[in-house]
Design a binder for these strands. Structure first.
Length: 264
DNA sequence: ATGGCCGTAACCTACGGA
């Protein structure tokens, strides 16, 4: 089973590229982030013709997540509060960033983690609080299944080798200590990076800034990936970053990451 | 150098992104 994640930076602008990519890659489950569209305007039709069941959780202009699945999902949970009933300090579901699908006893958690803007901003604190809430959500999910794949745009480069140039990273959004610790604390629930099972060295990135010819110079960051509980990590057989869509005209600033797991 | 580039909303500019 191939599970892909792709921050498309607007599904309406990128729909032809996503369609083209799905034509040439046999993807069972595609998790999209930053769809940037309300549900009634989501461009479903071409993808349904490819045989996908479409699950969407969007809002106007910002954020938005979606899951395409060749096999219908057994259950879908929209946002944190759909299953996490504890009262959060703030309503984290105002921003549409979490969509979970259950298939064959596996929970696929599609995430668009807040960017955080800069480390001295209110958005940075929101990001840290959001990650803390995500940890509670995953703790609950772990009581329901031992097979969880969390994937998406984490907006955090966990290690220095995930950044083209880690100099000054302590004060940089996506690489500060508090963000890394918040994510590390989540991973300590029992998750391992699928991509790192096969590729231990640095220099592999999933996002390149639109400015400064970053893609041509390969000055990127690896912030999109899959984190797997051990029963899934053990059966993962490959993970690759497909840079091809980033070479196309008018691309997303992110490129897709594919994880393959061998199902019994 | 607090920007560059891109998408959205909505209106010729602001915002959010990373």
């Amino acid at each position: 089973m191939k599970i892909a994640t792709w921050n498309v930076n607007s599904i309406r602008t990128r729909k032809d590229q996503v369609w083209q990519w799905l034509q040439t890659n046999e993807i069972d489950i595609l998790c999209l982030q930053e769809t940037k569209v309300i549900d009634k305007d989501f461009p479903r039709s071409g993808f349904e013709e490819l045989g996908y069941n479409i699950y969407i959780y969007g809002q106007k202009a910002y954020n938005g997540v979606a899951i395409f699945s060749k096999t219908p999902l057994d259950a879908v949970h929209f946002g944190f509060s759909d299953i996490l009933n504890t009262e959060p300090s703030q309503n984290f579901d105002e921003q549409k960033r979490v969509l979970t699908g259950i298939i064959n006893g596996i929970a696929i958690v599609n995430l668009y983690v807040p960017n955080g803007s800069s480390i001295d901003s209110d958005k940075y604190n929101y990001k840290l609080n959001w990650l803390n809430h995500l940890k509670d959500y995953l703790k609950l999910l772990l009581t329901q299944t031992e097979k969880i794949c969390i994937c998406g745009d984490f907006n955090i480069a966990l290690e220095d080798i995930d950044i083209h140039n880690p100099k000054g990273r302590e004060n940089h959004i996506m690489a500060s200590d508090a963000e890394r610790q918040a994510l590390q604390s989540i991973l300590e629930l029992g998750f391992k990076d699928g991509f790192r099972k096969f590729t231990p060295e640095g220099g592999h990135f999933s996002w390149w800034d639109y400015r400064q010819a970053s893609f041509r110079r390969n000055t990127g960051w690896r912030i999109d990936t899959h984190y797997l509980t051990l029963p899934l990590h053990e059966v993962a057989s490959s993970s690759i970053i497909d840079k091809t869509p980033r070479t196309w005209e008018q691309p997303s600033d992110h490129t897709p990451v594919i994880l393959t797991v061998e199902m019994p």
